[in-house]
């Protein structure tokens, strides 16, 4: 697992500050809710809805930062600031998220 996919120290800090049980639940919520955000993102590509596109990417970025998912947050930020709707970038983001989800799940079970 590369540190850029998930920085384990960020999650450790979250556990220390908020309690481990809470941090675990929050991580599960993140993974769960991300499906809704990707659904919005894909829908916005289809409907050419720039506002929803930007907002969904912004939400993914924000959550990625909370869990130390550096690459995911950077790619989401690029999409948020790009100013144009790009379906291919969304696919790349999705692949990054899947890697992140695997790494985070590993961290939760580790």
């Amino acid at each position: 697992m590369t540190k850029d996919i998930i920085d384990p120290t960020v999650f450790e800090e979250l556990c220390a500050a908020m309690g481990e049980d809470f941090a675990r639940e929050l991580a599960a919520t993140f993974l769960d809710d991300a499906e809704n955000m990707f659904a919005e993102l894909k829908g916005s590509v289809k409907n050419q809805d720039a506002d929803t596109y930007r907002r969904a990417a912004h939400s993914i970025k924000s959550n990625a930062q909370t869990f130390g998912a550096i690459t995911l947050s950077e790619r989401a930020r690029d999409i948020e600031l790009s100013g144009e709707i790009d379906g291919a970038a969304v696919d790349v983001l999705r692949a990054t998220f899947d890697q992140t989800a695997t790494a985070l799940t590993g961290l939760l079970n580790g």
Binding site: M18, F22, L26, T29, F30, R55, S59, S62, T66
Partner: peptide, 16 residues
Amino acid sequence: DDNKVNRILMTRSVEM
């Protein structure tokens, strides 16, 4: 906040 993760995290933070 429209983001569920942020809402939960912020609620917990201020309650603590």
